[in-house]
């Protein structure tokens, strides 16, 4: 046997030791927090120091700086708080009602898929429609209180839930159904033990999308018809050219959005832990 011929050129190609890779992983983990927060701070700093004002030739009455928005939030904390609750109740109520209606529609359609599918398709076309247009109609129906905005939010959310849940209820591994059939399980048992369970991840996905849709629906609804709420305050303060308070509404609405989103996420984690673990992998 000859000796292993190892040409010299190979020497300058260094193998990657495992330790080096690990170092890089650690670094990227740290940068996952540092970079975005640094970016956020930088953005706020440029804004505060009127960088955007200079670039876009804006005045402070057009685009208030962060500190004046913060001051405005502090000064109006009471009204912002009570309006947040008002708008929040529209969001939650409307989102739950709309999602529930969509879910019921999906379940009904899943029991009669042949006729149901057409109905779901029709509902899906609601998603392509700018629902804002319905705001004045809802005002005519339900007055200018919470109910009209809830109705807008419901209409905006039910299609997403119906489509998503229907998909979940119908897309089941055929062998699972065969397994249930081998136990001579009834249609309702298959639904309770199999279909509904498998649809839950889809239901939560729809719920999360619906949460952010709901905020838009409630706020836009209040632009049109309301004498209370964050959307009303926002459009009202713009008319009064009180920009810091208008921006405060945006900030509070954003916070509200994030909080509601996380609440849904926590519930999801409690209800379908098996799916969360799977998704992480």
């Amino acid at each position: 046997m000859k000796e292993m011929a190892v040409p010299q050129s190979a020497d300058n190609i260094r193998p990657k030791p495992a330790a080096l890779k690990k170092g890089r992983a650690l670094k990227s983990k740290r940068s996952a927090y540092l970079l975005p927060s640094g970016f956020g701070v930088l953005f706020l700093l440029i804004w505060q120091l009127k960088g955007f004002h200079k670039v876009f030739h804006l005045e402070q009455y057009q685009l208030p700086i962060p500190s004046s928005i913060a001051v405005s939030i502090r000064e109006n904390v009471d009204v912002l708080w009570s309006y947040s609750l008002y708008t929040g109740s529209e969001i939650v109520g409307g989102c739950l009602a709309g999602s529930l209606f969509g879910l019921i529609a999906a379940v009904a359609a899943s029991f009669f898929p042949r006729t149901g599918r057409g109905g779901i398709t029709l509902m899906a076309s609601l998603n392509a429609v700018p629902i804002v247009a319905l705001a004045p109609v809802m005002n005519n129906w339900f007055g200018d209180g919470v109910a009209s905005k809830m109705a807008i939010v419901s209409v905006m959310t039910m299609a997403t839930m119906a489509v998503s849940a229907f998909k979940g209820l119908r897309s089941i591994d055929p062998t699972s159904i065969e397994l249930m059939n081998s136990y001579a399980a009834g249609k309702f048992q298959i639904f309770a033990k199999l279909r509904f369970r498998s649809a839950l991840p889809h239901v939560f996905t729809a719920l999360k999308i619906n949460m952010s849709t709901s905020i838009i629906g409630a706020i836009v609804g209040e632009f049109f018809i309301s004498s209370r709420g964050l959307g009303y305050l926002l459009s009202d303060q713009i008319k009064l050219a009180n920009m810091p308070l208008a921006w405060s509404c945006i900030v509070i609405a954003a916070l509200l959005g994030i909080i509601l989103y996380y609440i849904v996420q926590v519930i999801e984690r409690l209800v379908i832990p098996w799916h969360i673990a799977q998704r992480k992998q």
Partner: peptide
């Protein structure tokens, strides 16, 4: 998670 459309009037 943020109501971007709220920016429209602004």
């Amino acid at each position: 998670m943020i109501p971007i459309i709220g920016l429209a009037p602004i």
